[in-house]
Every structure is written in C-alpha cells, then in structure tokens.
C-alpha cells in the first residue's frame, strides 16, 4: 500500500542526505520525494510516498522521528489530504499536429509553456493518477523528455501537520 508522509525537518545542510540515507539503509522503498522550505524558514518540509505494509510504515515513522533533525513526522490519513505533483513534458509536435495537441492540453488543463517548430513543452499539475492519464494521452505524440517533481501533499480542512 502507498503511504504519504509529511516530514518537517530542520532547514540546514545535510538533512536531506540523512533522511535519504535512512530509507536506503533500512531498506524502505521511496516512490517519490519532494522537499522545500515552509512558512517557517527554519523548517523544510518533505513529502515522501512510500510503498510498504502497515508494520513497515510504523517503523518508517519511528525511524524518521528518531533523527535528531526531524521536527515532526505525520503519515497523512487516507482520503484526508490533497496531493499534487508538477510535470514538465516536452513532446514532439510538428505544426500540423498542434491543434490536436492544444485540444488535449485544454481537456486536461495543462499549460503550454514553450513552443518550437517541432516540439511543445507542457506544464501539468495534478494528482499522480491524473498525471498518468495525461501522459497516456501524450504518448502518441512522442514524449521527448519528462520531468516530474514527485508528490507534495497537504491535509484537507483546518488540520496542519505541524500542530494537532
């Protein structure tokens, strides 16, 4: 099963490597990891998606909590959070195919951010599931380059990960 973790860590050098090293050392599989600074500039927030069983996620949570630089770890409750990821994709698209490509982009609510005579670059933000659908639709054009940030997640409603 896939679990999404919100991890608040001290925002200083070396912390990302400590977290990443923990996952590899303990044999936990990371599906995706994204990181950035938070409303409190002293803290960074990581969103990590882990594919594992219930016992393992307990260990992941405890091991992360044990790291000195970790301020808060929360396994986001199923159905209780919103997750998005940013995708940048460069596709082959000669002029004659542009109209069709634009229809696809409009349908999926993607933005065209760069155009050449032979390619188009699109920006797409949505859930991982919708991203997969989007990419399936683009595949016939020919995907030349794909960049995904991994999921960032936030809880629904007034809940925050930091304070409960």
């Amino acid at each position: 099963m896939k679990y999404t973790l919100a991890i608040l860590v001290e925002n200083h050098a070396g912390v990302l490597s400590k977290v990443a090293a923990l996952f590899s050392r303990r044999g936990f599989n990371i599906d995706s990891l994204s990181v950035g600074v938070t409303e409190d500039t002293k803290l960074s927030r990581m969103t990590v998606v882990v594919d594992c069983d219930k016992n393992t996620i307990e260990q992941v949570e405890k091991q992360l909590n044990k790291l000195i630089d970790t301020v808060k770890v929360k396994v986001l409750p199923e159905g209780g959070y919103l997750a998005r990821e940013l995708t940048l994709v460069k596709i082959s698209c000669p002029v004659k195919q542009r109209a069709e490509m634009m229809k696809t982009a409009e349908l999926m609510n993607a933005h065209i951010i760069d155009v050449t005579a032979t390619t188009v670059t699109l920006e797409f933000t949505d859930t991982s599931e919708r991203t997969e659908i989007f990419l399936t639709m683009l595949r016939p054009f020919g995907i030349r380059e794909l960049v995904r940030t991994g999921v960032s997640a936030i809880e629904k409603g007034v809940q925050t990960a930091r304070k409960e």
Binding site: N55, E58, Q59, K62, Q63, N65, K66
Partner: peptide
C-alpha cells in the same frame, strides 16, 4: 527508551 526498538524485531 527507543520507540524504534518496539515492534522492529518482534511485535
């Protein structure tokens, strides 16, 4: 003292 040890090798 270490919560990690509980449930790591034996529940």
């Amino acid at each position: 003292i270490d919560p990690v040890e509980i449930g790591k090798n034996m529940s």
